[in-house]
């Protein structure tokens, strides 16, 4: 708990420091950064809507970590999930929303699951580390989804590299217009609650935790290594896919090239900050979303360049990973 607070403070002070050093108008930039999500309804809604995506993605990665696996393929899995949903929405005949929405979400989750589970299977079957295989497949998938959106699904009338809009009946309800906050927030809440119950109460969650904590012990207890090499990373892939579908149905309503970019990495950042507890995942998602909105608010108001925003985000990821490495080193001594 204390560690989390320290990390949060460290991240916030690092952000402040970087903005103060690099912005030509430090005072205004910093004020804008901290007040960012609360400046108006739109900003607040954006804050929550990006946090809810991070909750979904981060929860998946947390489960993956608990299962002792690492999934670096988030970018590709989110994008593929969204693309699967999008393809289904555009190509299948028009359906009522209450049928279409679950179907599109399922398509995204299954796609994400299969992609990630492949890495788990490769690990089990051929001892190819999922860290590498998930990263490489993700790279290829991003290209493929870019191709889908810029090629077969492309809206020829648009100047954007984008598809047509999905039917209005398929979209998630707006909760706080004009902000992008939408009913996906309930999905995120359900994911957080379900994952908590799954991990800490269910038979499978127990096995997954034991396998992740000490695989020899789990095998000793007769827990199947194959299932639990595939399940943790598979779940993280499914939730990444879900995040992609929610971004599509709740925010963008159409595929735009690269429209889910960043969610994969930010999901990992959330899980790293959160550590193991689902409650902490909520907290970490809010923190990361806060920083995102804060930076974009700082960019909108003061003379902060786009590159500076990228630098600050990069710095946060480095701090988070350093913290994890540090902990590993302490364990050694």
């Amino acid at each position: 708990m204390k560690g989390k607070l320290v990390v949060s403070l460290l991240i916030l002070s690092l952000t402040t420091l970087l903005l103060a050093l690099l912005s030509p108008e430090p005072a205004e930039t910093i004020v804008r950064f901290f007040t960012g999500p609360f400046r108006n309804i739109y900003a607040f809604g954006s804050f929550l809507s990006s946090a809810l995506l991070l909750v979904i993605a981060g929860t998946g990665i947390s489960i993956c970590f608990r299962g002792g696996q690492f999934n670096l393929g988030g970018e590709g899995q989110v994008y593929s999930g969204a693309a699967a949903s999008l393809t289904a929405a555009l190509l299948l005949p028009l359906m009522p929303g209450f049928i279409a929405k679950p179907l599109l979400i399922a398509a995204a989750m299954i796609t994400g699951f299969l992609i990630a589970a492949l890495s788990g299977w490769l690990r089990h079957r051929f001892s190819i580390h999922e860290l590498i295989s998930s990263y490489l497949t993700s790279g290829a998938l991003v290209f493929f989804c870019d191709f889908l959106i810029s090629g077969p699904l492309r809206d020829e009338e648009s100047f954007l590299i984008a598809t047509q809009r999905i039917p209005g009946a398929y979209t998630l309800a707006q909760l706080l217009p004009p902000s992008p906050l939408h009913s996906g927030i309930f999905i995120a809440a359900a994911v957080a609650a379900a994952s908590h119950i799954f991990l800490h109460r269910s038979v499978w969650g127990y096995r997954l935790r034991m396998f992740g904590e000490q695989s020899t012990f789990a095998r000793f207890g007769g827990i199947s290594p194959r299932t639990y090499r595939i399940m943790p990373i598979g779940i993280s892939g499914a939730l990444y896919g879900l995040a992609g579908a929610v971004a599509l149905l709740g925010i963008h309503y159409r595929g735009i090239q690269g429209f889910t970019a960043g969610l994969g990495w930010n999901g990992i950042a959330v899980a790293l900050i959160a550590g193991t507890s689902p409650v902490m995942t909520l907290y970490a998602a809010l923190l990361v979303a806060y920083i995102e909105i804060g930076i974009s608010s700082a960019m909108a108001g003061a003379a902060v360049t786009y590159d500076l925003g990228l630098i600050v985000r990069g710095a946060i990821l480095i701090v988070v990973t350093l913290k994890v490495l540090k902990r590993k080193q302490e364990e050694l001594l």
């Binding site: 108006n40 739109y42 954006s46 954007l160 590299i161 984008a162 992008p180 090239q257 690269g258 429209f259």
Partner: peptide, 13 residues
């Protein structure tokens, strides 16, 4: 391109 709508919206907001 996926971020442009959100960013201009936040300026307008």
């Amino acid at each position: 391109q996926g971020e442009w709508t959100g960013k201009i919206s936040s300026i307008a907001a």
